[in-house]
Amino acid sequence: MNLRRIVGNLQVEAVYNSEIKDNTVIKGCYIGDLLSNVMAHAKSGDIWITVQSHQNVVAVAQLLNLPAIIFVDGHKPQQETIEKAEQEGIYLFATEETAYNIAASLYSLGVGRSEK
């Protein structure tokens, strides 16, 4: 599912302004704050929900081809994180909502369920 359509339906705000490319497709979702766990289990195309805000999350997202990160529970990424994400083309979003609520919305939208 296109990322633009997803974020249009979620209670999240873009961390930096950037037009989402047409071909940015989200295939699933992974939730986690232990980076090695994310490394082991997140799949290419997943949107990542976390509270870790330091710039190493961008490295993880870039290595795993995770197109976007959502920072939940009011966590805001650090300035270096934002700069690095812009550089690597990783989209960042932030929200006051919990990981559970965001994940539930993603599921209702059909993310990670087979698309026809």
């Binding site: 704050d33 232990l34 980076l35 090695s36 766990n37 490394m39 082991a40 976390t50 870790q52 330091h54 190493n56 999350v57």
Partner: peptide
């Protein structure tokens, strides 16, 4: 605290 050291490396 930064999410490393999970013993998964």
């Amino acid at each position: 605290q930064m999410g490393f050291g999970a013993g998964m490396g």
